[in-house]
Design a protein around this nucleic acid. Structure first.
Length: 497
RNA sequence: GUCCCCAUCGACUAGUGGCCCAGGUCAUCACCCUUUCACGGUGACGGCGGGGGUUCGAAUCCCCCUGGGGACGCCA
């Protein structure tokens, strides 16, 4: 009696866990297997992260495997970018990177074995012929894409094709039946074999296809858990069938929900900034990105938002991974990044901001270290990325001559009576002997009293004059850090215009 | 078209039959603080896609519909 069906399912899966051979005492082995055809994107990074988290949690091994069987599209630069991105995120691997392109001889062995056992066969259909077949299949339902026409080719027919210059592929023969995938996240998924079609396992260029190389490597590398994106679900029955044909032990599968863009389609280049490299450049912290990525499809029972990497290692679990796709929300990432920046000690943050200084055009050559640190301090709770710092603190680092005035700032400066006020401010400030935020504040407030105006009437135009903007950190700190010389210089400049 | 998956505020999610006329976080809005911005504080707005069941009782279980997504490559 299953009063609680879900408990039953969980129990069932637990048994699947056991029967597939993995016991807690055994070393968990997971892998991340990117194709080096571009950069590491957000989805891949999350897949890598979840694998890594699990490996760390169970003191297992995280294996990096580069799936470069598409020789046309794989590049060395891409490999480097992916490795760099993983390193930046703090996702370290215990083994690898292995390259599938260096393991061709291994795949060939197994191809040979399947051929010998009549579990695979040569196919001489050309891409054009296949395309036509596919078209037909699409029109008449219930027909597999490939009809198996090369299955029983005679030696003579094969020789005829070969002499015609055709290079064969090798197809895996699918036997009728049903194949069940036990997925840790989704439960039991059943597929009808006849819908799978005799798929290609060796391409005519001699390279194995994804499904083949993948399952061979997973088996030989003794992968215990295959954790990957949901887009691989339909590959899984194929891989299971291959695995069984070869007598391999099956790993445990877990398919993660996809990450989508705001238009609810899977995140891709079309959505713009999906490369991890982009977030590195914009000044996101790896800890923040890791935190955000973890929250995309996974959560704690109390919806905790800020979770450090080490805490993630302890708390993460596949059981709590959600089944529905998650939409990537840049605003939340920015917020999280801001939280992490606020949590940084000032010296660390100063160091990080220092690296972004060279992004400022027309920058003055040098700045005192102590002063720079104070500037960073002013922006610590105002920035969400290090890129924000560059933009907002720019006025500290450029010459008065190249300071840009925003239209809103100009409006503040051209109001009636502002010139007179600024003239007074300049005089008073230049007479100050101690140039600290406190003394400056006292000076300005006293001046406001003398002129019988509100302090704000001095502060706003002063901010505009010094920063070129109507927003900035506290003006007294800004004045103090800018220094008397630059302050008088900038006020003079606006008075002239 | 066929197969598979999914469905709670605008977004991420909590929720495993009564603690939920649904909780947290981001975003949005208002107020407080205040020299602007940000921070911080207080509060508001806002959701179980629809329809049938099962049950004393359903966001939670079942069915149908609808919607979204994935796969159907000599890409991975």
């Amino acid at each position: 009696m299953f009063s609680d069906f879900r408990a039953f399912v969980i129990k069932f899966l637990y048994c699947a866990f056991k029967s597939s051979g993995w016991r807690q005492e055994e070393v968990m082995r997971v892998r991340f297997a990117p194709a080096p055809t571009g950069y590491l994107h957000l989805g891949g990074a999350r897949t890598a992260l979840f694998n890594w988290l699990l490996a760390k949690q169970h003191q297992g091994k995280f294996i990096l495997r580069v799936e470069d069987t598409d020789i046309k599209r794989s590049t060395q630069e891409s490999v480097q970018v992916i490795l760099d991105s993983l390193n930046w995120l703090g996702i370290t691997w215990d083994e690898g990177p292995y390259f599938q392109s260096e393991r061709i001889h291994i795949y060939k062995e197994y191809i040979e074995k399947l051929l010998q056992e009549n579990k695979a066969y040569y196919c001489y259909c050309t891409p054009e012929e296949l395309k036509a077949q596919r078209q037909e299949a699409l029109e008449s339902p219930d027909r597999p894409a490939y009809d198996g026409r090369c299955q029983n080719l005679s030696l003579a027919q094969r020789q005829e094709y070969e002499s015609g210059g055709r290079k064969p592929v090798v197809r895996f023969q699918i036997l009728p039946g049903m194949t069940t995938v036990n997925d840790l996240i989704r439960g039991e998924l059943t597929f009808d074999n006849k819908l799978l079609g005799d798929f290609i396992i060796l391409k005519s260029d001699g390279m194995p296809t994804y499904n083949f190389a993948c399952i061979i490597d997973d088996a030989l590398m003794e992968i215990t858990h295959v954790i990957r994106g949901e887009d691989h679900i339909s590959n899984t029955p194929r891989q299971i069938l291959l695995s069984q044909a070869l007598g391999f032990k099956l790993p445990i599968f877990a398919h993660l929900p996809l990450i989508l863009g705001t238009d609810k389609t899977p995140l891709s280049k079309r959505h713009g900034d999906v490369a991890i490299g982009h977030y590195i450049q914009e000044g996101y912290l790896p800890e923040a990105l890791v935190n955000y990525l973890a929250l995309l499809g996974w959560s704690t029972s109390d919806s905790q938002q800020i979770i450090s990497g080490s805490e993630l290692v302890v708390k993460f679990s596949l059981e709590r991974v959600s089944k529905n796709p998650a939409i990537f929300d840049l605003e939340k990432l920015r917020w999280l990044n801001g939280e992490y920046i606020k949590g940084l000690d000032i010296d660390t943050l100063t160091g990080l901001c220092g690296k972004y200084l060279n992004k400022i055009e027309n920058r003055k050559s040098k700045i005192e270290n102590r002063k720079f640190k104070e500037i960073v301090r002013l922006f610590q709770e105002r920035m969400r990325t290090l890129g924000d710092f560059v933009e907002r603190a720019r006025f500290f680092f450029v010459d008065t001559g190249s300071l840009v005035y925003e239209p809103e700032a100009m409006t503040l400066l051209t109001k009636n009576g502002v010139s007179e006020i600024m003239e007074q401010v300049k005089t008073k400030l230049s007479q100050l002997s101690s140039f600290t935020p406190d003394s400056i504040e006292m000076c300005i407030r006293r001046l406001a009293e003398e002129l019988r105006i509100k302090a704000a009437d001095i502060i706003h135009p002063l901010r505009a004059a010094l920063t070129g903007s109507k927003v900035s950190p506290g003006i007294f700190e800004v004045v103090a850090l800018l220094g008397k010389k630059i302050v008088t210089e900038r006020i003079s400049k606006v008075l002239k215009n």
